[in-house]
Simulated scan of single mutants.
Amino acid sequence: MNTDISSAILLREDMGGVVALHLNRPQQFNALSDELLDALQREFAAISMDAQARCVVLSGAGKAFCAGHDLREMRGKPRLAYYQELFAKCARVMQAIQALPIPVIARVHGVATAAGCQLVASCDLAIAAESARFAVSGINVGLFCSTPAVALSRNVSAKRSFDMLVTGRFIDAATAADWGLVNEAVPDDDLDDAVTRKTAEILVKSPAAIRYGKAMFYKQRQMALADAYAYASDVMAHNMMEEDACEGIDAFIEKRQPHWKSQGSHNS
């Protein structure tokens, strides 16, 4: 395990194509300090250049996934310019997750509140322990969760997300799954196994196809319907020219397992 990232506030472990990133401020419930945000930004930049990386699992140490911004640190720097840069920095980190060419899975336990809930919503996939709870609770301290609202409202319907934002109420993992904030809510003891199953499903797919697909997925969501189809058609045509697509189709026709050429094969 690499423990040299920003004085070990962010841990990284590489395991056969899976990059595990572990928020490591357990005493602060993994609050997103300036230092932790910087560490995440640097690590996402490094992962984006790592040809061996196939997916990322983001988790938290201690009793919580992430309790949002470090409010104590924020109160210690009462300057508008600081707050503007802090929230812009956090927004860059969230966008870096979607800019990565590989899937990012949030492994959620404990609480995910405010910017921690934003972090879950920004990940491509999320699996939560049944005991996990979610909230955008800044309103309780007089601060509307404006930046978390961006990610939340892109996962959860307008009325449900606005209700969470103006009341600050917590929802449980089952509700989060029903509302689309997470993919699955699983028994606490099954959380690691559920994440492992999901990464295994990803690792046997074509790396090239996933990289084409993730970039296309988020870009087309911002387009008008006709433009989205035109763009997706062009991406799919280029994907068809990849060696992996030829191999995958041939394997399907020949009723055998494919052997991906891009980044080598992770098939069993």
Rank of each mutant, 00 (worst) to 15 (best):
M1L: 06
D4P: 01
L10I: 06
V18I: 15
L21N: 04
H22N: 15
P26R: 06
Q27F: 04
N30D: 00
L32R: 00
L37R: 04
A39F: 01
R42H: 08
A45D: 14
S48L: 02
D50P: 05
K63D: 13
A67W: 12
G68I: 09
R72S: 07
A81T: 09
Y82E: 08
F87W: 14
K89H: 12
C90Q: 11
A91V: 06
V93L: 07
Q95R: 11
Q98A: 12
L100W: 04
P101M: 05
I102D: 13
P103C: 08
A106F: 00
H109Q: 03
H109T: 02
V111K: 06
T113S: 14
Q118C: 12
V120C: 06
A121T: 03
A121I: 03
A132D: 00
A135W: 12
G138H: 10
G142T: 10
P148A: 14
N155R: 15
N155H: 13
S157I: 03
R160M: 06
F162V: 14
M164D: 09
V166C: 14
G168E: 12
A173T: 04
A174P: 02
A174E: 10
T175H: 11
V182T: 11
V186Q: 03
D189I: 09
A194R: 08
V195K: 13
R197T: 09
T199D: 11
E201H: 01
L203A: 00
R211E: 13
Y218P: 01
Q220K: 14
A228P: 09
A228F: 05
A230Y: 08
Y231A: 11
M236I: 10
M236A: 13
A237N: 06
H238M: 03
N239G: 02
M240Q: 12
E242A: 07
G248V: 04
F252I: 12
K255F: 05
P258T: 04
K261L: 11
Q263D: 09
N267G: 12
